[in-house]
Design a protein around this nucleic acid. Structure first.
Lengths: 220, 220
DNA sequence: TAATTTATGTCAGTCGATGACAGATGACAA
DNA sequence: TTGTCATCTGTCATCGACTGACATAAATTA
């Protein structure tokens, strides 16, 4: 890796660090891009060459987590039933979080706290989740051999799982939550989902019941 | 109602109409507040006296729907099991949509299309849903006599229902979907949820199994 | 009609974000 | 080492969303 690339990498990290420090100190909204840029001693214009927006910076790490889940699902055996494949992918995700946080255990919690402290960031993170949902749905539908545009079950099943992820990674702003606590909560919510869903339904496949109830009107 | 109030009401409607017309014509992002204000012949500053933001206008109607669901839940009999209460509240919502759309059947679909055509609006609408979730969760927890901070089941159950609402009201941008089609989809997704969830789990109440698995660490 | 309240317009300014151009700096070949 | 080239960066100008302050115009009430 050349000097140029190393420098870029360093600036990017510096911007992230400075930004999150300021966010935690004075909030997301009241931290200006100018402040962040000044803290790293680059021009505000340069900031936008590294991150498309202030929001992009705050949600930067979520991208890698989304990728983590989608690839984890892709790695599950083809014949694994949809629900098991999804929950296992989620477990892989939790585990990756545990491992990846070795250097800085508070990082994930810190980031979640910044996000949950700001409605705009919450909103944006939901929207990203929606993108991930699309990918997961496509993969489940492919495995089951159904068309996700017609059969709503893959879509709904994925929505259940991501609902669990959301609930599991909620992180009250007041109380000082540790990563261990948060991971524990994620595990427990995951097991709640496993209790909640009808195991028969979750093993739906092409031709099983429930297939029809999707399009209301006749096709033209 | 005095002249002043009537005038205000009229301006508000005019702003909404003009805005949505422009949104559908040229997109949400590329429609400026100045354009909307000009179309109604008010100053841009006045626009912001009616709506906190351009986004607020686009999501204006969602507020009333959120209220609809929460009050529908509150109206369910106290002894109705949580899941039934939620699904019935959702049915009430669908029905209200059907009735309320009598004058302008395309309105709901039009609004959904504007929202789903723009990531920012999608994001914001998720965030509002999250607020509604909080209220619903509080109500379910109250009925079941559990603490939503400790027992994650009300939270998760509500998240399932709102997941269903999200999936049900998704409205592909390309295809021209009618309100009837959309309502039909909502109904069918609702019945899918009823099939998917374990009826036993959904009747959880204080002291039933599943209660413990929520907090990971010891209580201090 | 006079006094009071309230909605609106104007103006100035902040902040996020983008395009255009010029200068600085690292990469690479001769 | 030197010169060329690609790329990074700063500066400047600009747009659009949004806000506070103040003055004016209109509606409400006495």
């Amino acid at each position: 890796m050349g000097l140029r690339e190393r420098k870029k990498h360093r600036t990017r990290l510096a911007l992230c660090d400075a930004a999150f420090e300021l966010f935690l100190e004075q909030g997301f909204e009241s931290t200006t891009v100018d402040q962040i840029a000044a803290a790293v001693d680059v021009s505000p214009r340069t900031f936008f060459r590294y991150f498309g927006s202030k929001e992009d910076l705050a949600l930067d790490y979520t991208v890698e987590y989304d990728e983590l889940i989608t690839t984890a699902l892709a790695a599950r055996p083809e014949d694994e039933p949809p629900f098991q494949a999804l929950t296992n992918a989620y477990r892989t995700f939790i585990h990756a979080l545990e491992v990846g946080a070795a250097e800085d255990p508070a990082r994930f919690v810190r980031q979640r706290r910044v996000i949950e402290g700001n409605p705009h960031l919450m909103a944006a993170s939901f929207a990203r989740m929606a993108e991930t949902e699309k990918k997961l749905t496509a993969e489940i539908a492919r495995r089951q051999g159904t068309d996700p545009e017609i059969d709503q079950r893959p879509r709904l099943l994925v929505a259940f799982i991501t609902a669990a992820i959301r609930v599991g990674s909620e992180c009250p702003i007041e109380a000082t939550t540790s990563l261990a606590e948060l991971l524990g909560k994620m595990e427990s919510v995951l097991s709640l989902v496993e209790q909640a869903l009808d195991p028969g339904w979750c093993q739906f496949s092409l031709g099983s019941s429930g297939q029809v109830a999707t399009k209301a009107s006749s096709p033209g």
